[in-house]
Design a protein around this nucleic acid. Sequence first.
DNA 1: TTGTAGGTTGTAACATAGTTATTTCAGGGC
DNA 2: GCCCTGAAATAACTATGTTACAACCTACAA
Lengths: 197, 197
Amino acid sequence: MARALDEQGQALLDAASGLLAAEGATGLTVRRIAADAGCSTMGVYSRFGNKDGVVDHLYMEGFRRLIAAMEGVGDSGDPLTDMRRCGQAYRRNALENATYYLVMFARAVPGFVPSDEAKAVSLASFQRMADRVRKCQEAGQYIDGSPTAMAEVIWGAIHGHVMLELVGMRATGDDPAERYEHMLDLIEQGFRRPERD
Amino acid sequence: MARALDEQGQALLDAASGLLAAEGATGLTVRRIAADAGCSTMGVYSRFGNKDGVVDHLYMEGFRRLIAAMEGVGDSGDPLTDMRRCGQAYRRNALENATYYLVMFARAVPGFVPSDEAKAVSLASFQRMADRVRKCQEAGQYIDGSPTAMAEVIWGAIHGHVMLELVGMRATGDDPAERYEHMLDLIEQGFRRPERD
DNA sequence: TTGTAGGTTGTAACATAGTTATTTCAGGGC
DNA sequence: GCCCTGAAATAACTATGTTACAACCTACAA
């Protein structure tokens, strides 16, 4: 597994990625992936075993983009600000890579279950969130507590809002961005250490 | 549309419901629904138009269960307590009807889009949440603000946690129930009106 | 009672999906 | 030159949503 891909293999992944982005999970068929990459369907099976093997790569690619988005926030010197920007980057990435996000978090490809390797990549993305929590704690801006536990609380909340927005579930006409900020406020409020000056 | 169902129609819905519960969205096929209900596939098409027609009913049934769960909390006299219990009932219902929940919120049936009637039912479930917010405000326990906007913030947060739990995304070994309570704490903290005694 | 219109049913067929079997073929080794 | 091996393409198999079609009811009017 995970051995280097030849040119044809990369072409297949590129084709799959393009299909997923353009038409979502329903347009992602083995035949079309192969056709777009200029080979027969066997090309998929000899290189990736089956369709899930391709999806596994897309799954990881999605998490890599998410990680890049969260790391792209950088380090302003104020961890609290960085955490806020990280939350915003999370949403931005999810909207820009909506079809990826649904494969990653909503099981948009029926029957697909990520491999252990893919799960490890998804955990790495979560780790970025936990790191930010720890930095806020070290700066005295967040209350004490397990950074991973706190990160999970944050993750769940922002994920839920992103998810509802992606599937178009809107109860009110409110701006989703505003609502999202409101939710980030709530998190910040809940985890912030009371200032002592 | 929405006219009364004959016995066969009800049998089809029961069969579909059983299949969804037992095997999830991937086991939900027109042929099996019809076979379990004891008729040919045409029985589905003459009554529901197509597969999505059946799924539409399951979608609404799922929201009806969610509404029943949230209403089952009742009225203890303390809106804040009721809100907490409502949040817990939401999670409990989602776990007990996991396959339904994924059809409702994760688009588990590829290509399915809910009808206007189904969307109305989903909005009704959201309304229950907004009502609880309003009650907390009237009791002076919640800060002022648009109840629907606040309910959407709550909804997103609890939905995200439920969703991550349903698809098995766990970064730590923490108890999901505890994490969920932690998140409910955050919401309560953020929306609670400072006491003035 | 009879005939007709309209809907329902069961069977079979169609298109498309993932996957597998079979054939084809190019490149080396003898 | 002949044969073996491995990969590719073609075709086939199974399952799925859907549709076509003929047979069969079921009203309802004459």
